[in-house]
């Protein structure tokens, strides 16, 4: 049976009703995420802190992400060097490979690739873990044992991601530049010493800082999306799976959107 309010007289979906319901749904979701983020932020930036949980999450989010971040960075750096070489070759600008690799990695790709990889590895993991806790009543159990889930579960993940992402991005920057160096020296016949000197000469603290500041924001987004989707996971394996998928997609899109907004901001202020 069709709902009269959402179908036109011919039985086709009423586009205005569809649009209205979609808009209301979107606004409600933004409201819920904002309230959730506010409560998580409040728990994260006010004592008492659960240092045991924070340390566990720093290890889980930061330390165990090192291999995936390192591997992604080396390949991105290598591919970037090859493409810049090929493109630069068209107008005799091959010598700028080290400069553009270090600029691209530190300002943009190091942070973005780390953010996207962690949106997959960490956000989905957090959502699945918290979703499973929710459907097995562990979150209710926490509350009955006088533990606030915002302090015990969400704030440590939020802080751990915000603290470790900059370190991971720094690692990605170093390994990404190394990837470019490897390809340039061993495949493109660049002189190793000249490549390194050009890289160091061109590198500025501002470029590195831009990537690190982005990383803090990406870390917050990654943890919040995982915690939020997990906390509203519906019952059963399907519900937990859906929460993991939604969290990963949401975090990836938000990382890219935040990257654009932050890049615009840094350009505006001249960094």
């Amino acid at each position: 049976m069709s709902d009269a309010s959402t179908t036109s007289s011919g039985g086709f979906p009423n586009p205005l009703a569809w649009l209205g319901r979609g808009t209301l749904g979107l606004l409600s979701e933004i409201g819920r995420i904002s309230i959730f983020s506010g409560r998580t932020g409040l728990a994260a930036f006010s004592p008492p802190w659960n240092l045991t949980q924070l340390w566990k999450q720093i290890v889980a989010i930061g330390f165990y992400s090192l291999p995936v971040v390192g591997l992604s960075a080396v390949f991105i750096g290598a591919a970037l060097a090859l493409n810049i070489y090929t493109g630069g070759n068209r107008f005799g600008a091959e010598q700028f490979v080290p400069n553009i690799v270090v600029l691209g990695i530190t300002r943009e790709l190091g942070a973005t690739i780390t953010g996207l990889m962690l949106a997959g590895r960490v956000t989905a993991g957090i959502a699945a873990e918290i979703g499973a806790m929710k459907v097995t009543e562990q979150i209710d159990a926490l509350k009955t044992l006088s533990a606030n889930p915002f302090r015990y579960l969400y704030a440590p993940r939020f802080l751990a991601a915000a603290l470790t992402l900059p370190i991971l991005v720094l690692v990605a920057d170093i390994i990404g530049v190394m990837g470019g160096w490897l390809v340039s020296v061993y495949a493109l016949d660049f002189d190793s010493t000249t490549y390194i000197r050009n890289t160091v000469d061109f590198l500025t603290m501002e470029d590195v800082s831009v990537g690190l500041i982005k990383a803090v924001i990406f870390g917050m987004v990654i943890a919040l999306m995982g915690c939020y989707q997990g906390s509203k996971s519906s019952a059963g394996a399907t519900g937990v799976g859906r929460a993991a998928t939604l969290s990963m997609v949401g975090a990836a899109v938000l990382v890219l959107a935040a990257n654009y907004v932050l890049s615009t901001f840094f350009v505006q202020i001249g960094i």
Partner: peptide, 13 residues
Amino acid sequence: VGMLFQSGALFDS
């Protein structure tokens, strides 16, 4: 108050 949940709700970690 104490509570025994249906599933036990023990913390896996």
